[in-house]
Write a protein that binds this DNA or RNA. Structure first.
Lengths: 234, 234
DNA sequence: CCAGAAAACCGCAATCACTGCAAAAATGCT
DNA sequence: AGCATTTTTGCAGTGATTGCGGTTTTCTGG
């Protein structure tokens, strides 16, 4: 936010034709390509070093050395050390948002929520996935308090976005607060179930997946009789 | 005491500052009392300065100066800056745990969960309360990303404790995963509803309280038909 | 191919959270 | 008072993060 951000370009690039490039790997200028390359290198190196030596024991300087940039430059790619771990969580959120916005006329709140859960929580190739936190990453996060905190904040912000989208997609059934409660219950139940599964059985993909499904079921049960908000009085 | 310029009572004679010694339940002497006093001073000064100047803009040294201790000593009271804000959240958790462990033979999971919510979320004198985060604190946390993260982590740990207790209190109805899902749905729904209420209407105690109640209702609805955990097929 | 503009990169210095260590001070006990 | 224990503290160091200013690379237009 304070300096250059890696997400959206703050201005229109002078002469860059924004042709049909879905992955940003084709068509663009060399400048952009190189930046994306360095970004990938940073994420990969960081995640690997975090796993090998631990999060706290790995310094930003070490990650930068692996990626071939100066430590100072790191902060023009990420706002901090934590962001390295949650760099591509946004994609997972967009997936959920697309599911919400693409509701059919016959879809119910409960149905869409279940679909979100299938898409983003329980249907990862590795076995489980919580907003982009798959296998390796999950273990890393679970063993690092600082990352736990960051993950929870990220999930919270994702929830807010999902709730807004859900309220917009079901204007008859939900207001903002109702949507917040619905999404919160869904995500909370899934995370709560997963947490206990991890706590008791370790990082077992099968158990985690089953636990998440149970969480989904429990939360969706509360959504099946969603009624319009009583009044907008507060 | 070489650098002491804030008028700290360093050379206080061993006389009682309170006068009467019957108030404190601890049989300890002056040493313990002084430590608790300093702890309180730190929390109070910190919270006030955070509110006045902002969390990030307030240094630990400033807080310590107000409390009359050396900066180094701060870390023998709290493990870090964040802990100052969540120092007395544990009490609220213990309240919830006592509710769970004191279940009556006729109480249902849904009923106990509703009771937890009443006790810990919505029944604060200030109007609302989320695991010890009342009024002032809530605003502070909501406006500080670092504190948001810390709060979420604290809530997560509290959830885990509550889930364990709930599973132990309802061994017939819930296993660990089911309890995790139940507590997660409850807390998640309440927080999600509160989040949206804050996002749309600001820090309005009445609206927040109403939103929390709606969150409780939604989550509890999913708990009313709690069945024993049927093992997952996969 | 060249000049100028824009963007990115880098080094330097500074602030601040946090930690380990050993001396100094306060306190408790006899 | 004299000794043991606990607490406080100063010092020095690591590492994250930021502001500033200079240098290099890439882009754009001629």
């Amino acid at each position: 936010m304070t300096t250059r951000d890696t997400g959206a370009p703050a201005g229109t690039p002078p002469g860059e034709p924004d042709g049909a490039a879905g992955g940003a790997a084709e068509g663009g200028g060399w400048r952009r390509r190189k930046k994306e390359l360095t970004r990938r290198a940073l994420i990969e190196a960081g995640l690997r070093l975090f796993r090998e030596r631990g999060y706290h024991e790995t310094t930003i300087a070490q990650v930068c050395a692996e990626a071939g940039i100066a430590p100072r430059t790191f902060f023009s790619y990420f706002s901090g050390k934590e962001e390295l771990v949650f760099a591509d969580t946004a994609e997972r959120l967009n997936l959920a948002l697309r599911v919400i916005e693409g509701r059919g006329p016959d879809d119910t709140v409960a149905g869409v929520c279940r679909c979100i859960a299938e898409e983003t929580f329980a249907l990862a190739p590795g076995g489980f996935d919580l907003l982009g936190l798959t296998g390796d990453r999950m273990e890393l996060v679970l063993s690092t308090p600082a990352l736990q905190a960051a993950a929870m904040r990220a999930v919270g912000q994702a929830e807010a976005r999902m709730a807004q989208a859900l309220a917009r997609a079901f204007p008859e059934e939900l207001d903002a607060v109702g949507a917040g409660a619905a999404v919160g219950a869904l995500v909370g139940a899934v995370m709560g179930a997963a947490r206990m599964a991890f706590a008791t059985g370790g990082t077992d993909a099968h158990a985690a997946r089953a636990a998440m499904r149970r969480g989904v079921d429990m939360a969706v049960r509360g959504l099946e009789r969603v009624e319009p908000a009583a009044d907008s009085g507060g």
